[in-house]
Write a protein that binds this DNA or RNA. Structure first.
Length: 477
RNA sequence: GGCCUCAUCGUCUAACGGUUAGGACGCCAGGUUCUCAUCCUGGCAAUUGGAGUUCGAUUCUCCAUGAGGUCACCA
């Protein structure tokens, strides 16, 4: 069997969203699981649509997610160059072959004339077929007019690794453009030549190409080449509505998720699970497991919707699985200024306390603020607390004073604080919901925190006592 | 409009003719002597509709409906 060679072939027209990444991911998984090669190729034949910086951005996106390619525009390879605009002579050569065989001809019409044909078809509610207007004796092609494929309309029945057995009639076959009047090939032509020359074995792409597949089959025949394995992926749908996920509808750049502190392995797992499963009830996969278990047979034929809630859950689950030192290492760029100014060891301990409540790293500053700076006393925390609001300031002050006195004798280990807090419950005769809430608010000025004893132990005695004093004076008024 | 594809809880999905239609996310309720979270337990919730084939259809066939794609000198 031939070595599996897959490719990801984006056009440098913008960032990569989850839909694009999934095509890349599945191609990458297929190559990796069979020790094949994964190729990156830039399809830059439409210079009008090209966006500056898009190439670097695309490369950064793949690298960040760990989708390393074996051959590509920036690293070369045996079939270089991997950028279509640098391969024009290849398309020219194959075009000449088609012309010589009478399978390609110059388009004699102006753009306006073709548009008129199109409008006419549309007006009579017919699909537009250029070949209905195929010129009888087209002029010789001099490169200034578009070069069209002279198709051979017929039935097709073929197999798609995901979509199964497909078939169409001759009415979908048309004389599409091979080379535009600007000298660049169209995608329809260029990708076939490149996939052939680069020895690509599996062509994976989105469902939007399904309708043109019969035309590609017709061209393969004219070129007398064996088509690769065809793999058509369903679309990923936007969160609301049924439209395919697109940049216009607010699809996010995958790097935005990284910037928000989602782990690359979460994105990989999540995107893989959109339209693929291994047939078991497993939900969380390491990337290694994905490579091992991925199979085209288990790819869905229907579109899947992107659900950020599920993404949050998955990322939280993966964050919890990470050993603390690694988690710390990977979250370094997400701390607040005050956090970064603090002692490394202390910061890591703080992270340990919030690890289980973190969904993505961008939440770190908000969740950890009170560990690094003294927040001003906020009366609303008490007046708005359903446990505390019914008590008078005097009562609260009394309990807090008792607590302060007792805590001042503590060595402030977690164990000792726990013991003392429990003692204080009986001393004050209060439920934990009341007393602990009071002490939590006094020591953190936050509505929520990790467990009280651990939080206080980490904050340290001086800080806690000072903060309790501050709260006490605020309760005076 | 022609052609193509798709169709299970709100969402991601399992069940390759026989299950009380399973799991996960989310949501709700309870538990873990405190909040938030974690963890645990329980609950709500689906086979688009109609014919057919079959002893038996989520599963096979046909029709309808709905959704998506495509009909570019864009990919």
């Amino acid at each position: 069997m031939k070595t599996v060679r897959t490719r990801f072939a984006p056009s440098p027209t913008g960032f990569l969203h989850v839909g694009g990444i999934r095509t890349a991911l599945f191609a990458w998984l297929l190559a990796r699981q069979s020790s094949g090669q994964f190729v990156l190729r830039f399809e830059d034949t439409d210079k009008k649509r090209e966006v500056a910086g898009a190439r670097d951005h695309l490369i950064a996106s793949l690298r960040t997610l760990g989708l390393e390619y074996d051959e590509g525009p920036d690293i070369g390879g045996p079939f270089a160059p991997y950028t279509q605009s640098e391969r024009l002579e290849h398309y020219q050569a194959w075009a000449q072959k088609l012309i010589a065989e009478g399978r390609a001809y110059a388009d004699p019409y102006s753009a306006d004339e073709v548009q008129a044909f199109r409008d006419q078809a549309r007006a009579s509610k017919q699909p537009f077929l250029y070949r209905n207007h195929r010129p009888e004796s087209p002029p010789e092609w001099d490169g200034t007019a578009p070069l069209r494929f002279k198709s051979d309309p017929k039935d097709y029945a073929w197999h798609d690794a995901v979509m199964g057995d497909l078939s169409t009639g001759p009415e979908v076959i048309d004389d599409f453009i091979l080379i535009k009047s600007d000298g660049y090939p169209t995608y329809n032509f260029a990708h076939i030549i490149d996939d052939l020359e680069m020895e690509i074995t599996h062509v994976m792409r989105g469902q939007e190409f399904l309708a043109s597949q019969p035309n590609y089959l017709n061209l393969y025949e004219a070129l007398e080449i064996e088509p690769p394995v065809l793999v058509t992926m369903p679309h990923i749908l936007a969160e609301n509505g049924n439209k395919k996920l697109s940049k216009r509808d607010g699809a996010k750049d995958v790097l935005d998720y990284i910037r928000d502190g989602y782990l690359p392995e979460t994105l990989v797992n999540f995107i893989a699970s959109l339209g693929w499963n291994d047939g078991t009830e497993q939900e969380l996969f390491t990337t290694t497991e994905l490579i091992e278990k991925f199979s085209l047979e288990h790819v869905q034929r229907s579109g899947a919707r992107f659900d950020e809630k599920r993404l949050d859950w998955m990322n939280g689950a993966k964050i919890r699985e990470l050993p603390l030192p690694e988690l710390f290492e990977r979250s370094t760029s997400f701390w607040s200024e005050a956090g970064l100014a603090s002692d490394t060891d202390y910061r890591q301990k703080v992270l340990g306390l919030v690890q289980e409540r973190l969904k993505f790293f961008a939440e770190i500053p908000e969740l950890t603020e009170f560990f690094f700076k003294d927040l001003p006393v906020d009366d609303v925390l008490i007046t708005g607390n359903k446990q505390l609001k019914r008590y008078s300031s005097a009562e609260l002050k009394n309990w807090l004073t008792v607590s302060r006195d007792r805590l001042s004798l503590s060595d402030f280990t977690t164990e000792d604080i726990t013991t003392i807090l429990n003692e204080l419950l009986s001393v004050t005769g209060q439920k934990p919901g009341v007393l602990f809430s009071l002490i939590r608010i006094a020591t953190t000025q936050s509505p929520a925190s990790p467990s009280l004893a651990e939080t206080m132990a980490l904050l340290g005695k001086d800080r806690c006592m000072n903060r309790i004093d501050q709260q006490l004076s605020a309760l005076n008024t």
